[in-house]
Design a protein around this nucleic acid. Structure first.
Length: 414
RNA sequence: GGCGGGAUGGCUGAGUGGACGAAAGCGAUUGUCUCGAAAACAAUUACCUCAUCUUUUGGGGUCGCAGGUUCGAAUCCUGCUCCCGCCGCCA
């Protein structure tokens, strides 16, 4: 969420941000509500001052009579103030974050800017199969049975794919622990206020599952519970940055993605993921963002999967993100790079909603910044491995770093 | 799921209608003392917010949360949340 004071004092910049993001939100109702609220606040406080004065006097029939009158007035004004305040917050919570420095301007995905590439896409002397076909032939993936059990966009991982998943989890967690991250398995069910605080509500409500009869949602990513870990807290400066590596199953309705990535497990309702989440001092958030991306690159290099790093343009940026890098792996069957990881600096947008602050050495309390990045979206990582390591005879090589987890160098048809 | 107990400042904990933003102790910070430290003594020690002549002054709010009663609520009433204990169930 943006600071209303900031919106008031930097209205032209906020308008420019909305334009760059391609959002059509009219600021005038927000500014009007803000003004109304401040007038009502002043009025309320004046009346309260009066009440406090009266009630500090010795009670007499006159003062009690006066107090009764003031009480009624306060009631009316407070009711108005409350109403205006709620409207303001509702409207304000739809505004996306300000755009960070060096974010390329653009309308959509096609304007994203490639930052760097690593590795050469492998030349196959045969037509490479897609991961679903490979998974079927090697008995690693079963989407038909999954569909019977749970409907479309679901998957069953089997055999070596399962071993690879656990291998990846261990590999990535150990690496991140070495980088100062605390491993965490957070709840996959979260309260509405968590979804709101993380910045996904109200905007992305439709993308998430709500539990019948409960005020709980299935987390769409470990980012949701992790972002709330220090809500309503003031963290000591020397504890920052606080770095968490959260492992969690993630759930997405994928509403609005009809027809996209329908084959295989690139886009499914349920997947497992390790997420990097960092609470940091404001001045360090952009450098932390770069570091998380380096961690992504470490993994893909270890797996020897060609990738590129892309900076999202203003129009493709998510609501909470001031800046986002996507790390995309080469997918041979699609002859293109596909998003595996996504790193964002949310600056103080989430911290303001959660009221997560830190105390500086000078004794001032300020909002922290939050940075989040996939460490490994395991399903998609498996896709990249299967496709890039496939061989002409139908077998799939196991990346060297995972061989000891899988117990073999090559997966052959059973 | 049932029954019982609880929630007050960084911590422990007092406070059952007005003088309470809140006793006392601990902790922390500063000072005196000391070569230095400890001890002792003294002082300071929550946060949010609005306005302002913006290292100033004044106002408002905050005792788990939300309502209510009252001229006046940490204190009374209602609902909720969370924590602790016992029983039940259970991986």
């Amino acid at each position: 969420m943006l600071d209303i004071k900031f919106v008031r004092e930097h209205t032209p910049e906020v308008k420019k941000m909305l334009k760059l993001r391609g959002k059509e939100i009219d600021l005038s109702p927000i500014l009007q509500l803000d003004e109304d609220r401040r007038i009502l606040l002043k009025k309320t406080e004046e009346l309260r001052t009066e009440r406090n004065k009266i009630s500090s006097l010795k009670p007499s029939p006159e003062t009690i009579e006066q107090g009764k009158r003031v009480k009624e007035e306060i009631k009316t004004v407070e009711l108005q103030l409350d109403g205006v305040g709620k409207q303001l917050e509702e409207k304000l919570s739809w505004l996306p974050n300000m755009i960070g420095p060096d974010v390329p301007e653009g309308r959509d995905e096609s304007d994203n800017q490639e930052i760097r590439r690593w590795g050469e896409p492998k030349k196959f002397d045969f037509e490479p199969l897609d991961h679903l076909e490979i998974g079927k032939r090697l008995d690693l993936l079963d989407l038909e049975t999954a569909a019977e059990i749970a409907g479309p966009r679901m998957g069953i991982l089997k055999n070596e794919a399962v071993l690879m998943q656990f291998g990846l989890v261990e590999l990535v967690l150990k690496f991140l622990i070495g980088q100062g991250f605390q491993p965490v398995i957070p709840p996959a069910l979260v309260k509405e206020k968590v979804m709101w605080g993380a910045g996904y509500f109200p905007g992305s409500r439709a993308g998430h599952y709500k539990l019948e009869g409960e005020e709980l949602y299935l987390a769409g990513t470990a980012e949701h519970p992790l972002s709330a870990m220090h809500a309503e807290e003031t963290i000591a400066e020397e504890k920052l940055p606080l770095k968490y590596a959260g492992y969690s199953t993630s759930f997405r309705t994928e509403a609005g993605s009809y027809g996209r990535d329908v084959r295989g497990i690139i886009r499914v309702h349920q997947f497992d993921k390790i997420e990097q989440f960092i609470f940091t001092k404001p001045q360090d958030s952009y450098s932390q963002l770069e570091k998380t991306v380096e961690n992504n690159e470490w993994l893909l290099r270890k797996l020897e999967i060609p990738y590129r790093v892309v900076a999202l343009c203003s129009g493709d940026l998510g609501t909470v993100a001031a800046k986002t890098y996507d790390v995309e792996a080469w997918i041979p069957s699609q002859k293109t790079y596909r998003e595996l990881m996504s790193a964002s600096n949310a600056t103080d947008y989430q911290a303001r909603r959660f009221n997560t602050r830190y105390k500086t050495k000078e004794g001032k309390t300020e909002l922290v910044h939050t940075v989040n990045d996939t460490a490994s979206a395991i399903g998609r990582t498996l896709v990249a491995i299967l496709e890039n390591y496939q061989q002409k005879d139908g077998s799939v090589g196991v990346p060297e770093i995972l061989q000891h987890y899988v117990g073999k160098k090559v997966i052959v048809p059973k």
